[in-house]
Design a protein around this nucleic acid. Structure first.
Lengths: 146, 146
DNA sequence: CAGATCTCAGCTATACTGAAATGC
DNA sequence: CGCATTTCAGTATAGCTGAGATCT
């Protein structure tokens, strides 16, 4: 990464700027680590939702992971191609697909969990454990109001 | 915005997810508010750097605002077209341009400052003043370590 | 020579929109 | 009918890369 000159005060003290910069770091870390695993960011979110809540329709998956309905389609295509999820029509509501995580999908999720844990640690480096908890608490509180 | 179903715990408790979601909200707010003013996000950053540090080369501007050299070019073209900045060759180093903010640029910056203040308030709604200061302090500390 | 600067063309990922087809 | 779901095609923005021309 390139060295950075002094940042204008207007930016330096704006929550929106700070949050954006940190989000950028987070994305770079994830792209770097997931790049090795050849896994775009959406894949983890979808596998996590399937593992935690069980089989679901694509619309549900989108709502649980904040991924747009149309991006869910593309990501599930890739996951199904790799055998990480199954997609079959819902007999009870023929508009829907029922998406299920496969054993291979669970194994992949476990691998990605480890990768993600490293990313969190890298991202939170600079705060001690108490500060980290506080930071997460404040973030959570903010998001509850949106 | 659409209603959201329960979020997987893996995501809900990850700093990277939380920061990304908040950053998304921030971008949506800025796009919404700046959209009215017809000003892409980069423009504010550049005007702020020019107002606070005075005339600068494009490379300096990029480093101060974390905007890529090639995006600085495009944004300055638009700003110069609107008469918000001047761009003239540096007589002392003929590789460089000297970019200067115009009076119209300063007026625009003042307008945008007001818009941005509303965005910050909207974004930080949910935290009381003490918590907001704490949140900014933690963010700053984190970014210093990157 | 190495290195900095400006510019352009083009790329990727993320997020999103609109509309059609199907079914409830 | 209105509404939900899946899918596809396309858009927008941010961030980034590579290379050429110019200059220190």
């Amino acid at each position: 990464m390139e060295p950075m000159d002094p940042v204008p005060e207007r930016l330096r003290t704006s929550p929106s700027w700070l949050v954006n910069q940190l989000s950028l770091h987070s994305r770079r870390l994830i792209a770097e680590e997931f790049g090795k695993a050849n896994t775009p960011g959406y894949h983890y979110r979808l596998l996590a939702a399937l593992a935690e809540f069980g089989p679901a329709s694509q619309a549900e998956l989108g709502r649980r992971t904040a991924i747009d309905r149309s991006d869910v389609v593309a990501a599930l295509n890739a996951l199904a191609d790799q055998g990480l999820v199954d997609r079959s029509p819902d007999p009870g509501d023929r508009r829907r697909n029922i998406v299920t995580i496969t054993p291979a999908g669970r194994r992949r999720l476990t691998e990605l969990d480890a990768v993600l844990a490293n990313v969190q640690d890298s991202l939170m480096r600079g705060l001690d454990p108490d500060e980290r908890r506080l930071f997460v608490r404040l973030l959570t509180k903010l998001l509850e109001h949106h």
